[in-house]
Nucleic acid binder design. Structure first.
Length: 475
RNA sequence: GGCGAGUUGGUAGAGUGGUUAUGCAGCGGAUUGCAAAUCCGUGUACACGAGUUCGAUUCUCGUACUCGCCUCCA
């Protein structure tokens, strides 16, 4: 059994071993996207980080003993604005964006959570929770709004390590006449005729952002659950507010809080305001595979800022090709894996899982994969292959086999031309006509074809700069 | 202004109170007609200052610098 240690933002340590409330139902909630546009690369980081944790938990506690919830915020002013400017309906935009998100995150190897609640489907529980908070004296209605009274919760600020005085000192909070305290935040706000709204005891309106997660987590995971995750930009105010709402409603809420660090691009913060962001789909369209994106993400620990660079992209591409070719060399395909499983040889590497269990040390796990990849036989490579699957870097073993015959995509005339040149070359080599042999090899190299001689047998493969036009003249 | 994180060899990036991270690049070797590919070997790095210690890159304090959050964002 792999022990798991997680750095808990709440205690700022990773000292204690993770122990689920119920090891037959380990529960995790992660804040999902507000669905108004394509996910940018930064959005993919928490998805991948918590996907790895989800896979680890399932490995340790069993696939059926983990419940993973990630929400969709489908009611939000950004969505309203997008709808207004595009002339499309809100429903159209949210449906479309959700599908984009699922496609893009699927491409980077993320397993879909067990539940993906949409906020708009949970308005009733939110209203009920708000009513409860009012009844308990933690919230108040004013001018069609309902506000959470921050001063009613003494622990406010504990997660993010801020005192009320700190927050007021640097306050950049919205001042509104209906607020009793500038720090109070909105649980419910009124909607006008053009804005989505639901009937409530406080008139037609819509929920505030923070109450969504509190209500959905409670509805799907219960009053107390194991892990709550998200980006560290959500620590304050979003998670702080979730805690305040849920605790004041009498829920114990999350035991362990995990936060991933932010993503940068070529050393600079990726942000909408700086305009240097790009989407996951942009990368996929450029031919960067989801596995490469994932490998780059895993190469930095989740609690450190990660820098996306072109250099890393290339290195990840090379590493992945190397690993796949190792597996191909030993005949890995769906059937091989099946046979290994039948023979009981499909087992996890204990060291790899231990490293991963140590606060999701994915760079350490990748280092271990490099070591495991040196296996000399299909059996010896089983822990390596198993590790690749656990980390989500390989999902389809039949695809590993298929990529060996990538040259099928080439135009019909190319392979015969290359084969003919290789035959001519081996004739020249047999005659010790090195000048001619090297001329032919240089020619192939110039077209981006890699020539490999093993035990006197020549073979070829498409290199990264493959350019068939050089061979065109030799048709 | 407040809160928080970080500073490791050419580079990316883990980790550890004394003993090999790992990848890429480099260098040396095996192999090769020569290469490529492959394999083997190789680097003695932990911002600065002080303290604790038999011993600190690893713990404590301070300094410098970088970055993030506090505002829509993951």
């Amino acid at each position: 059994m792999t022990d798991i240690y997680l750095y808990n933002t709440k205690t700022r340590t990773k000292g204690q071993q993770f122990t689920p409330i119920d090891d037959k139902n380990v529960r995790m909630y992660v804040c999902g996207p507000t669905v108004y546009d394509r996910a940018h690369l930064g959005n993919a980081r928490p998805v991948i980080v918590f996907d790895v944790l989800n896979r680890l938990l399932r490995h340790v506690y069993g696939d059926k003993h983990v419940t993973y919830v990630r929400n969709f915020t489908d009611v939000d002013d950004k969505i309203n604005a997008r709808a207004a400017e595009s002339g499309r309906s809100i429903g159209y935009i949210t449906d479309e964006t959700i599908q984009w998100f699922l496609d893009d995150m699927g491409a980077v190897g993320a397993i879909e959570p067990d539940h993906m609640p949409r906020a708009t489907a949970y308005i009733a529980p939110m209203v009920a929770m708000i009513e409860d908070l009012i009844a308990k004296g933690h919230a108040y209605a004013a001018e069609g709004h309902v506000l959470f009274s921050v001063s009613s919760y003494a622990e406010y600020g504990a997660l993010s390590g801020r005192s009320m005085d700190d927050m007021i000192a640097g306050a950049r909070v919205e001042i509104a006449p209906y607020k009793r305290d500038p720090m109070d935040f909105v649980l419910w706000k009124p909607s006008d005729a053009d804005t989505p709204g639901w009937d409530s005891p406080w008139g037609r309106g819509r929920p505030g952002w923070h109450i969504e997660c509190s209500a959905m987590a409670h509805d799907l995971l219960g009053a107390q659950f194991d892990i709550h995750g998200g980006g560290n930009d959500l620590t304050f105010p979003h998670h702080e507010n979730e805690i305040a709402q849920s605790k004041c409603a009498g829920h114990d809420f999350a035991n362990v809080w995990l936060h991933n660090e932010m993503l940068q691009v070529e050393g600079k913060k990726m942000s909408k305001s700086l305009g240097n962001f790009f989407t996951v789909r942009d990368l996929l369209d450029q031919g960067v595979s989801g596995e490469v994106i994932r490998l780059v993400m895993l190469s930095t620990h989740y609690r450190k800022p990660m820098d996306w660079t072109e250099t890393k992209r290339k290195e990840a591409d090379n590493t992945l090709s190397d690993w796949i070719s190792v597996l191909q060399k030993h005949g890995y395909c769906a059937k091989t894996v099946e046979m290994l499983k039948a023979a009981g040889d499909w087992t996890a590497d204990v060291e790899l899982m231990g490293v991963l269990g140590n606060d999701l040390n994915t760079p350490g796990a990748l280092a271990r994969l490099h070591v495991l990849s040196k296996g000399r036989t299909a059996e010896a490579l089983a822990p390596f292959a198993h590790g690749l699957e656990t980390l989500g870097l390989v999902s389809d073993w039949s695809a590993v086999e298929a990529s060996a015959s990538e040259r099928d995509d080439l135009a019909d005339w190319i392979a015969p031309v290359i084969d003919r040149l290789l035959v001519e070359r081996s004739t020249a080599r047999a005659d010790k006509n090195w000048g001619e042999a090297d001329r032919l090899r240089d020619l192939l190299n110039a077209s981006g074809v890699q020539v490999t001689d093993i035990a006197g047998e020549a073979s070829w493969a498409q290199g990264p700069d493959f350019d068939p036009s050089v061979l065109e003249a030799l048709k």
